[in-house]
Simulated scan of single mutants.
Amino acid sequence: MSLRTSSGFYRQDINRTVWDVPTRYGDLIQIGTGAYGTVCYLVMPFMGTDLGKLMKMERLSEDRVQFLVYQILRGLKYIHSAGIIHRDLKPGNLAVNQDCELKILDFGLARQTDSEMTGYVVTRWYRAPEVILNWMHYSQTVDIWSVGCIMAEMLLGRPLFKGNDHLDQLREIMKITGTPAPDFIMKLQSQDAKNYLRGLLKVPKKDLNTICCKASSEAVSALERMLVLDPEKRVSAAEALELPQFTEFREPEEETEALPYDHSMDNTELLLEQWKRHTFTEILTFQPPITEIKDSKETSL
């Protein structure tokens, strides 16, 4: 049952929750519930698919790979400048529309451990080795490793590192990166990790040209800069954007940076009404880029 309230709004009771919504969003239906609320309408730019589904449907040309990876790196430059690390980049977290425009999804989910992602082992294939084995305090370059894995998969048509468990994943990685050098092993915080790596048979680094034999030299060079075992030697998002691989699509004026993210409210204890007011104020003051307003199409589910 719904009831018209103030001009342009109506009220509807769903699952013992009262909703006051604009009349343009009619016939609300509950989509799902969680620990902190219920979702009944969800409005966002329509993307159509994600990169994982797209790769299953077709083999991507190198031009499209360049454009998609360029957009990922541009997004990462922005969030990294704000001090935010995604931590769980994978094809399913990258939405793509029919114009090959890409958006990064699911921020925050990456904080979960593998034990909290029961049955979702595929996420490990794109994770940096230092995250998989908790080797050290990690930085923004964990996301760059994931980009390298995703880019390689787009070029090859299959995942690059397809481990069955943590150690198998590491073995698959070192078949290509080679076993780590002593200076890297010294940086590790875990003595067990140091002992394990020192006990491994030495494996030389593999030339990625032999694996991505159909890719251009520029594409392979970009992968070589991303898929580096030592996170301190991996290219940053801003540095990666400067690589020759992305010259064709670059729009330097669009490669923006953000102000550092303000964490001060994260652990604040406020009354529910105060949180509602903060959220509402944030929505009212949000100013999307002009291009977004002009080009995006809304869809409701």
Results as ranks from 00 to 15, higher is better:
M265E: 12
V21C: 13
Q245K: 00
P204A: 10
K202M: 14
P260F: 01
R74L: 08
D114W: 01
I211L: 15
W19C: 04
F246M: 10
Q30W: 00
L42E: 06
A152Q: 10
E130N: 05
S190A: 12
G178H: 03
T285G: 02
Q189L: 06
H137R: 04
M55T: 12
T279F: 13
E248D: 07
C40W: 13
E251L: 12
D88A: 11
R171P: 00
S236D: 07
R124V: 05
Q191A: 08
L105A: 06
V220Y: 01
E172Q: 15
T210Q: 09
R87N: 06
D192S: 13
E239V: 01
R158F: 04
T281F: 05
G48K: 14
L241A: 05
L54R: 11
R111S: 03
L160G: 00
Y138D: 01
V96Q: 11
R234W: 12
T179L: 11
M1H: 11
T210A: 12
G163L: 13
I290M: 13
E224T: 08
I290V: 06
A240D: 05
I173C: 12
L89A: 06
T256D: 01
G48Q: 15
G32Q: 10
Q71G: 00
E101L: 06
S2W: 09
Q140L: 06
T299E: 15
F67W: 12
L28S: 07
V235T: 15
R87T: 00
Q274I: 03
L51G: 09
H263W: 07
K206E: 08
E251S: 14
E298C: 01
E257W: 00
V96A: 06
G34W: 07
L76I: 10
P288E: 02
E101F: 05
K53T: 07
S146Q: 10
M265C: 04
K175P: 02
H137P: 05
P260A: 09
V142C: 02
L229N: 09
H166F: 03
A238I: 04
S221H: 13
E232T: 11
V39Q: 02
L229H: 12
P180I: 07
